[in-house]
Nucleic acid binder design. Sequence first.
DNA 1: GGATAACCGAGACGGTACGTCCGGTCTTTGG
DNA 2: CCAAAGACCGGACGTACCGTCTCGGTTATCC
Lengths: 199, 199, 199, 199
Amino acid sequence: MKASRASTGNRRNPETHKAIIKAASDLIQETGDLTFEEVARRSGAGKATIYRWWPQKIELFIEVYNSQFKTEEEPPDFGDMKKEIDFLVASTLRTWDESSPSGKAFLYLLTKLHNQYPNVREMRQRFMPKQREYFKKVLQKGLARGQLREGLDLDVVTDVLFGFTWHCLLSNQLDPEAVQLKQTMDIICYGICQPLPAG
Amino acid sequence: MKASRASTGNRRNPETHKAIIKAASDLIQETGDLTFEEVARRSGAGKATIYRWWPQKIELFIEVYNSQFKTEEEPPDFGDMKKEIDFLVASTLRTWDESSPSGKAFLYLLTKLHNQYPNVREMRQRFMPKQREYFKKVLQKGLARGQLREGLDLDVVTDVLFGFTWHCLLSNQLDPEAVQLKQTMDIICYGICQPLPAG
Amino acid sequence: MKASRASTGNRRNPETHKAIIKAASDLIQETGDLTFEEVARRSGAGKATIYRWWPQKIELFIEVYNSQFKTEEEPPDFGDMKKEIDFLVASTLRTWDESSPSGKAFLYLLTKLHNQYPNVREMRQRFMPKQREYFKKVLQKGLARGQLREGLDLDVVTDVLFGFTWHCLLSNQLDPEAVQLKQTMDIICYGICQPLPAG
Amino acid sequence: MKASRASTGNRRNPETHKAIIKAASDLIQETGDLTFEEVARRSGAGKATIYRWWPQKIELFIEVYNSQFKTEEEPPDFGDMKKEIDFLVASTLRTWDESSPSGKAFLYLLTKLHNQYPNVREMRQRFMPKQREYFKKVLQKGLARGQLREGLDLDVVTDVLFGFTWHCLLSNQLDPEAVQLKQTMDIICYGICQPLPAG
DNA sequence: GGATAACCGAGACGGTACGTCCGGTCTTTGG
DNA sequence: CCAAAGACCGGACGTACCGTCTCGGTTATCC
């Protein structure tokens, strides 16, 4: 638990960094909570050190999160945007579901921290940056294939899709096979409205 | 701020009740959060009194929320489902806007206390039954008018639309005139995918 | 070390009070220092409780001090003011000397705390209030006996005498038999100047 | 505040030295205390540099004190010992007054760091040799003039007078015109006791 | 002239204490 | 039976200094 680390002068000590992330990660998984106090205790770091690098809890949380969920997979080329989107969504949900209890713990903390940080959009975009990227790639391919409606801002679409997975997390609906989820994906992908009569 | 209330003997004091709700409401409005400590201070009530009637923070939030959120409006018949949906979404967002404590209280319910009510769907049903009903009515009319794709489960569609407003709240995007929001509504309403080539 | 005390409702808990004074006293004697943190740890009290009643360290210190040094003795009536003053001064010095190491510890803390509290006069007058009283009584008797120069403010004289004992403490000269001290007392009592030629 | 000094290689940098003393002096002046942290910040020196040359706070205080306290004045010959003593005391007090960091630094030396120099008499000799000398000269002249009681050890008297100025500093009574101070000086000079009835 | 030694700035680091805030429990008093 | 008042323990908060450390860079001196 405790550690004794050699000084690295006025250079940031990577071991300390690691120890802090480790302690924070353990804490989240064990208790579903995260206090700077306890992270400092466990990591053997001074509180001030933690505050120096992660002035807000959420920032430590994001780093812990991104350091743990490396399982994003880029979807293979199915030749069909819909299938690729389904793949990505399912993969995201599975990641959150299977990694229980950590997934649940992250969810818990995520919601607890949410209303402390007003700029939620910015925060979200720092979560899982790779996953976002994959979504965007898939959309670009879809656009090239003529499968995407024209005139759409890809960032907005990414937000909608990615935001949808978050909604699933908040709604505790992480089973990609659930009927409701499939229908909702259908709605999003094909639209809830009839296409205007051809012309 | 302070108050001096006569005792009502062994009957619960309605003035105290009101003062507590008022103080809690003000606090949520001001800070987006609420501490029993401060509610007690402002309402002039003892902490124990508050704990007796609202042992959990969330219960106080719920009461504040329900005491304030009375503004659901049924949309007029525009003859156009899209317009009616827009009306409903905009009306919901406006309700949650900064002018009232409702949005902040609801946001709080959605996030910080999420772990106490993990099944958010239950919350949905509990908190805004009328609004759901309006959404459903609009969809039914749209279906009758032939404006809605066939084969969709109306409950799911309601969930998507209503869930979208939640997403706006979480993302702090409550301005119905925002470009991004309009685009997202478009995506949901018309679908992000091209209609299959003319047929 | 730790303690578990029954609640006394909204009445101050005298056991907590005692435990805090005890812990503070022990700390001073053991380490010559005093931190609220450690007092809280040892007494089993919350830090906030200590801050509530002794917002400044010096106030806790004074209470500890006065609760420990109960050995002030009122001088017998020698019929001679000078003898009575000598008695009081010697008694004060002995108290500080014999109660080693606590005397030294108190001295240490006294000096350490000194420059945090600008109103030193007021502070000093709260130390050993009885001893001050004895000094004043002796002077009043001396005045009645015609042994004191007329026209002197007794409070000022008390200050001079009492302040002198403090000076001894600071100078580490606590032996009442020391030649230097006796001379200084002589100087103070009889004046360093010749009396003006009778008239 | 900040500074950028050219390196002087393996020779101690006198500019750094000056900047540190300046910063320390300013700090004492402003707050009555001093932290290495802030001295480093203001002087633009590294903390290690300060620790190298002044490993203990008190050493920095002493240097600041000595670099500033140059104002001792020898009193003119008034033909009256009392007047000369008053002159010296007033001059000492003025020196310590708020206008210069000397008083605060000296007060600091007297109190917070007392435990490191428990023998205050040593400090006396170390810090103000000239002032002591002036006091002694005045007393010798007074003795020659027949203004001083006979049989007194001049060193002790010097101590009493000089010690009195310290007492003023500790008591925050540095105004030479204050009534209380004048009375105390009177008491010391003429004695608090009546001269034996005419003889 | 290249190695060596000391100086200096910068600032990271583990600690300890600070003083504040809130949570949740309790008891007394009094209507 | 209920409300008010507020003391109490616990523990996290975020900040400030302490004293130690190492880096990178500079300059004089010595071989």
